[in-house]
């Protein structure tokens, strides 16, 4: 199942490369909007980084179900597989592997390039990895809710749920910069992820069933 989803997504180059390129472009565009002085670059860098991850994850889920829904394969999969939530988990994981993980690694690279602080950039990596997975799950829910109604509506209804994650990311960053115990924020995000990773696919499977009924 995983292999099939992986191959399906890999074939749709626009779907996985698009969000990565958008992330890349946002991060490249950022220095153009501020002075090329290193201290000025660092001021807003991480805020831009979190927002770029958020937007990329939003774009990554844009057509996670729509194509399958339009060609009828989603309905067939739902009939054939009683545990549809497993398929949703697989889809989310595949998207994270091909989009979320490269973006997290790119976050580390951009962070290293901007701050030249290896320990800070290494601390950013787990935050980016976990947050990208959380955002992906939330936007998948939004996408399922607004299936065939356009992804903007889905993003709008689930964006408020992503805001607490952004707050935690901001607080986590301050903790890293002040050299306070930032692991508590990682555990908080991991705790949220452990609930989300189970709950969201179940909710999404019910939502898709409601669409197909």
């Amino acid at each position: 199942m995983f292999k099939l989803e992986f191959l399906k997504l890999r074939k749709k180059t626009r779907s996985w490369l698009g969000p990565i390129l958008v992330f890349w472009l946002i991060m490249l565009a950022y220095p153009l909007t501020v002075e090329f002085l290193r201290d000025k670059l660092e001021i807003g860098f991480f805020s831009v980084l979190w927002i770029a991850i958020l937007i990329s994850m939003m774009l990554a889920t844009e057509d996670i179900f729509s194509e399958d829904y339009n060609d009828g394969s989603l309905e067939q999969t739902l009939i054939q597989n009683p545990s549809f939530s497993i398929i949703v988990i697989t889809k989310i994981f595949t998207h994270w592997l091909l989009i979320g993980l490269p973006i997290s690694i790119l976050s580390f690279v951009f962070s290293l390039g901007t701050t030249e602080d290896l320990s800070l950039s290494l601390s950013i990596l787990p935050l980016a990895i976990i947050s990208s997975y959380i955002f992906l799950n939330l936007f998948v829910l939004g996408n399922a809710l607004s299936l065939n109604k356009g992804s903007v509506l889905g993003a709008l209804v689930t964006m408020p749920l992503a805001l607490p994650v952004l707050i935690v990311l901001g607080k986590g960053l301050i903790a890293i910069q002040l050299d306070i115990n930032y692991q508590s924020f990682i555990f908080l995000l991991l705790g949220s992820l452990s609930i989300i990773i189970v709950a969201i696919p179940i909710v999404v499977s019910y939502v898709i069933k409601a669409h197909l009924e």
Binding site: T158, V207, H211
Partner: peptide, 21 residues
Amino acid sequence: GLISLHNSFSNYEKADKLLSW
């Protein structure tokens, strides 16, 4: 968001289910 989601569907039964979730 909830109001906009509900208003975007013409099928009320479907809208109710999605809104509830």
